[in-house]
Design a protein around this nucleic acid. Structure first.
Lengths: 192, 192
DNA sequence: GTGATTATGTCAGTAACTGACATGATAAAC
DNA sequence: GTTTATCATGTCAGTTACTGACATAATCAC
């Protein structure tokens, strides 16, 4: 293999996060990012499709890990169970990345343009989960619905987990599904 | 009131949809849109914040209508019931806009940049629904979870409705919630 | 009519992103 | 160890989305 470029890529990611945090997303220029990383602006765009993408580099790995976890769930497990299993299985990874992902989350929370990107990444995750369910034999549209709802429950659980890490993500997830059933049950009859 | 500009705005929307359909999103220039609408490029950007936004102009109206429908639901109705009520109440509006929204949907389906925008608009809808639920006294995070899940069910129902309009949106919605409960029920015990 | 308001035009400028070609470093072949 | 192919990077010119500043003209209030 020739010279890797992984080095420059990592420096670009680092510089991107730093500058976005220091000056905000809109106030920082791709040229500035490149300069801090010690490369040319053109090189930035060879590594990342656009200005935002440098912040979302690990996503494919995470997505694949989730998909494989769905497939690795016990065969007799129902769809939601498999998704719950998958989300629980990434707790370690998420905990390890916390120091990096929390300032990033704060930045995203105050930057609409970055929120857009998060949403489409999340949609990609949902698609991957749905596809994994299908490979377990779940019908397409049910798989899609289950994946979306599970993702909603996961977001809910993750946000509570950040506030109160003690019980662990799995416990918050179980709680989220409980609340979900509680909110859905009254619909069983037109009037409770 | 002075000269309205509504006229130019409508022409700009029309020209935007036409050109995106004819040449695709990326291949059409804001200058071309403005030219077809008989105005200057600068005028385009005075009416719409960016190139995409001209396609999403009615969203605020729709969002407000949904919010008000949630508030208009019978007072004793539970959260999900109120959301179901709200979604059912916009069936007429959706049916009326079908001729416009279906080609638009096809365009969006093949344009990632437009999908991003749809997702953030949907997120705005979810926020509005969640806010409306809160004004009905629902606790914040439960409201958020319920709004997300209801939106997932709505998307599911709407996509089936497009394929098979006969039963009506409300019936597809009810069916979506049924499927959802079916998918959620096995989680009641760790192993069914 | 006069004058205030406001949509639009004009124009210059910034910054994200792309294509084409040149250069230089690395690794594999010999 | 020299050669050669490969690939990351630099350089540069160009397009396009988007913005600020100022000028013009159409409409409304009077």
């Amino acid at each position: 293999m020739p010279r890797s470029g992984e080095e420059a890529r990592r420096r670009l990611q680092q510089a991107t996060l730093e500058l976005f945090l220091e000056r905000g997303y809109e106030a920082t220029t791709t040229a500035e990012i490149a300069a801090r990383a010690g490369v040319t602006e053109r090189t930035f765009f060879r590594h990342f499709a656009d200005k935002r993408e440098a912040l979302f580099d690990g996503e494919e790995v995470f997505r694949d890990a989730l998909s494989e976890a769905v497939l690795a769930a016990p065969e007799e497990m129902d769809p939601m169970g498999a998704l719950l299993f998958a989300f629980s299985s990434v707790e370690g990874t998420l905990k390890a990345n916390r120091a990096f992902s929390e300032p990033r989350a704060a930045l995203i929370a105050r930057t609409p343009a970055l929120q857009e990107r998060v949403l489409i990444k999340t949609a990609g995750l949902i698609d991957a989960l749905s596809g994994a369910l299908r490979r377990r034999g779940v019908e397409e549209r049910v798989a899609n619905l289950a994946a979306r709802v599970a993702m909603a429950a996961f977001s809910y659980a993750a946000s509570r987990w950040v506030e109160d890490p003690a019980p662990g993500l799995a416990a918050h997830l179980a709680n989220a599904f409980d609340e979900l059933r509680g909110v859905l049950d009254p619909l069983r009859k037109p009037r409770p």
